[in-house]
Every structure is written in C-alpha cells, then in structure tokens.
Design a protein around this nucleic acid. Structure first.
Lengths: 210, 210
DNA sequence: GAAGAATATGAACAATGTTCACATAGCGCA
DNA sequence: TGCGCTATGTGAACATTGTTCATATTCTTC
C-alpha cells in the first residue's frame, strides 16, 4: 500500500515513508523482521536508496525510536500541566505510561535497547529521549526544573518513579504478569496499584501482613 | 586460547565451551558481535558443529541467558536465608542485584530481551528464570511460597520490588545515571537509596519538600 | 572388531548490510 | 530556455550471517 504514488523517479517523501514503514513492520512483526531491505521493499524503493536518508540501518531504527519518545513525551505533557504537584498526577501518568508500553511493545523495547539504537551517536534520539525523561523531575521540582538543571533527573525520587514504571512495563510486555494486554481496565488498575505502592511505601503493609 | 586441546576430532566438552565463549564475546564486545559463526571460530570448531549441541543461534543465546539467571538466583539465595523478613534483607538484595547488572551489562540485557531469547520456547531458560524471580515473593510470603503458588509472583508488593530494581539497573546500565559503573560503593549507595525510597514511600518526602 | 550413535567437517544457499559506479530528476542561474 | 549542480534514485557486487546437507571421523557397546 505504501508504493502508491510511484509515478516519478524522485518522489520527495521517502524518508518519512521509510520511518512509517519501519514502524509498521516493527509493530506487526517485531524487531527480528525489521531489516533495512524489508523496509525498502515495503516502501517500493531500492535498498541502496535508504542510504540517501539514513547513515545506516541503526540510524533508521533510531529515527523510529525517536518518534516513540516524542509520542511518549506528548502523552506525558498531556497528563501533567506542570502546576499541580499531587499524587493523582502520578497515578494518571502511570496509567498512560503503561498503556503506551502495552500498546507498542516492540517499539517500547526498541526505545530501551541501547545495543540497537545508541543515544551517544544520534543527536535526534538523544534530544527526544531527554524530553521524555524530564517529566517526573519536573513533577518533583516544579515546572521547567528539568530543562534548567539536567542533573536533577538523578534525584532519587524522580529516579524511583521512572524506575518502577519502567520495570512494571517490562513485566507486562514480557508476559511476566498474567494480564491481558488488551484489557485496559486491568492495566489501569495494575498501574495505579504499583504506583500506589511506591507512594505509600512498604513499611505499613509489611508490619501488618503475617 | 579456547582451541587448546584440539587434539581429537571429538573433544567432549564442546557444548560448555560454546556457552563460555559466547559469554565472553558477549561480555567483551556486546550482543552485536555475538554471532554463531564467531563463537564457533572462538572455540575452534566448524559453524555446523554448533547444531549438534543447540537447535539454532537463539538456543545458544538462551543457554547463556539461563546461565545468567542461575548466577543471579545463587546471588539472591546467598542474600536471604528465607527466614528473616526484614527491610535489611531487601537492602542487601538490592545492592547485590545492582552490582550483578553493572558488572554484566550485556548479559543482563540479554536476559531481559525476549525478542532475542524466548522463554516460551526454551524450557531450560524458563526454569532458570522462574527460580530467580521467586525470591522477592518468598521474602514476602515466607520461604518456599513461590514454588508453592506460582501466581504469588504477581503480588503487587513483590512485583514492585522487582520492578524498581530492574528499572534502576536499566538506568545504570544504559548510562542514564551519571555514575561510574566500577565505583561499587556508589552503586551500593544508589541501590540502598532507591530501595529505601520504596520502603518509606513518597508521601512523607512529598509533604516536606517545597 | 564390527555396528550404530554421536559428533565433526566443508560446501552450498538465501538473506542481510553496505558500497560503488552510474542514471535520472529537480533547481538555480546564465 | 538551456545548462550544470546537487539530490535522489538504480542495479550489481561483496563479505558476512544463519542454516542445511551429504559425508567423514570417533566413541560406545556388544
């Protein structure tokens, strides 16, 4: 379906088409099926043409990952206007985060696979990644704090918030939790439950249960 | 160095040699360098010989991952005798867990890359993985609970414990935290700090800090 | 010592990432 | 308009990879 307007030799939007096609293949068939040649085939272009738009296969995958980060970042900004600093914000955020991961498992995994896509060699990816990590820091310090002091990201609490969400997402994606990934209500419950555990801590439940 | 005792046509321990060589290549050069042919070369054996010991490349990687799980499991059992159910156990466990991940980043990542090694198709991997996940559940329910009720793994608290540790490990491995991966004292502090956050919860610090 | 299982080999195949020489289209400028 | 420069496309080629197959060697067992 991709190779529709193949009337001219030059067609103008190959770069975007490649990223979209790569994203589709990744989503439908997983990382193993995501070869450079496959994507080129999907778009209806010669394999070598890809190199006019990306340095190599890795750079193409990085573009897909960067796209994912932007999507995630948008989702986060939608959940948090930067003013109200309440636990409810965290709960909302956790729900949407887990949904995103569940709905895009292969993409989510790719985004956190530095052996495939390397932050250090791809500025676009680095920037997109940065912006999506900043939210929990902003939430803690106040709006804009992340941009102001990049190191603030390493505040133990901000770090814990993201760590537990990422860990949870991995468990769900990898099928370590027996939950139907399409049951969004169950996913929401799981996200809230987990974030609530972090908010309340373990001490009280620990002293109660035998 | 591997191909020392290459005196006989049949040499008896090729399977183990393959796993060891694969583990070394993974450790020293990362997943990208870990090809079946490369491992065969390292051991001093023809590529096709590998298929006498493993179904395919994936099965070889799964054996490496399973080895990692067993190591992790051993480390966990050493940290916890199954009786004392105190926060201190969690702190000890978190330190060792983070150290393991930091010292074996590529291996750790492989262990949690189901797109490369699939639990569902490899019984050895599944078993090794199971046993290493059980600890936080045992800690919560009491010794042996995990084996008794496999579903107990999904207890929200046990799940949170592992999630936050895994998330933290990923952050360190992927360089998202500016910490020297060889500075084990700093790693220990980070692990304790994070686990302490989970134990105490966010409510109190949240109400204090402006 | 011979039979059969286990384990090794080398040749072959398709697929992949990448490079290169070359072809064509779009664009700015005489 | 036409000319050339640059961007973008093509197809052929190459090394490497995972995998299979026919074949050879060794080990084990009787």
């Amino acid at each position: 379906m991709q190779q529709a307007n193949r009337k001219t030799y030059h067609r103008g939007n190959v770069r975007d088409d490649l990223v979209i096609a790569a994203r589709d293949v990744l989503h439908n068939e997983g990382l193993a099926a995501l070869s450079l040649r496959r994507v080129a085939r999907e778009v209806g272009v010669a394999p070598s043409a890809v190199y006019n738009h990306f340095r190599n296969r890795e750079a193409l995958l990085a573009a897909v990952a960067a796209d994912g980060y932007r999507q995630l970042s948008r989702l986060e900004r939608d959940s948090y206007d930067g003013t109200q600093r309440s636990p409810e914000v965290l709960l909302t955020l956790s729900r949407r985060y887990l949904r995103f991961a569940s709905e895009n498992p292969s993409l989510y995994r790719l985004m956190f696979s530095p052996e495939v896509v390397d932050y250090r060699t791809d500025p676009e990816l680095a920037e997109a990644g940065e912006s999506s990590f900043g939210l929990s820091v902003d939430w803690w310090y106040g709006q804009g704090a992340y941009a102001a002091t990049p190191r603030a990201r390493e505040h133990p609490l901000a770090l814990s918030v993201w760590a537990i969400m990422h860990g949870l997402a991995m468990q769900v994606i990898d099928g370590l939790v027996s939950i139907n990934r399409n049951d969004s209500a169950a996913l929401d419950r799981l996200a809230e439950q987990t974030m609530q555990t972090l908010i309340q801590g373990l001490e009280e439940p620990l002293s109660k249960k035998p």
